[in-house]
Write a protein that binds this DNA or RNA. Structure first.
Lengths: 118, 118
DNA sequence: TTGACAGGCAACCTTATGATTGCCTAATCG
DNA sequence: CGATTAGGCAATCATAAGGTTGCCTGTCAA
């Protein structure tokens, strides 16, 4: 799999990216440092990030150094920025156009609680 | 849960956002139109998007209209754009600073393929 | 008022996904 | 050399996530 969105979905992976943003080119064990996770877990996360093309790796002796790849992030970001600008306009226009429809009547607002609420 | 990253991780949800980008304020059934998914599935996806604050809903009679909320997207985007700009520099500097370590020696470059490549 | 329509709730199922453990290979250093 | 260190691979496990089905509530229009 290689979906950058999916790769970004996990907090641990975002944290790993954060660490690489702080210091690029770190090895696996260094990236593990201080994390409450096994080395294998981190390794898998890095593999997913690599598959999503968010990081690149280079072997250096027995170490594997990890480097950020800004390109796909930039792609995502540009795509959603475009959307964002568009929708900001749309949302604005839409809100203005609509006569708020402020609740046709206000009688049966209360609904039985779904038993799983708190 | 309300993690916008996780909300964006699913292709179906991104598609729903696309549809709302194309036409804001659509109802549930309208959003279902043409999708190979049950109404309940779509409903769940919309709930996740709403929990992540990526869309807002307004009841209008028996319909529920869905509106994009650009703010959290913008937040994400800004955060990662900042990172992106930073890392572009870092990556550049890093590449230049390193005397590429071009393979300490060039013998064992070929590695057995991991069976899952392609 | 009755039936069609929009939507919600809950139970259930299947498969991803995140994580662990145990063992193996390959560099590095004393 | 032998011990240590960096990392990989495979099996295994528990839970989350996406999806479905069945049934219920509320709104609208003829």
């Amino acid at each position: 799999m290689s979906d950058p969105f999916r790769a970004l979905a996990d907090e641990s992976r975002r944290l790993l990216l954060d660490r690489l943003f702080a210091e690029n080119g770190q090895s696996l064990v260094k990236l593990c440092d201080g994390l409450a996770m096994s080395r294998q877990a981190v390794s898998k996360h890095l593999a997913i990030l690599e598959a999503a093309n968010l990081i690149a790796v280079r072997k250096s002796g027995r170490e594997k150094r990890h480097y950020l790849n800004p390109v796909p992030l930039a792609k995502i970001v540009r795509r959603w920025i475009g959307k964002f600008e568009d929708v900001r306009l749309v949302a604005l226009l839409d809100t203005e156009a609509k006569p708020p429809i402020k609740r046709p009547s206000a009688p049966s607002r209360r609904r039985r609680l779904p038993a799983s609420v708190r």
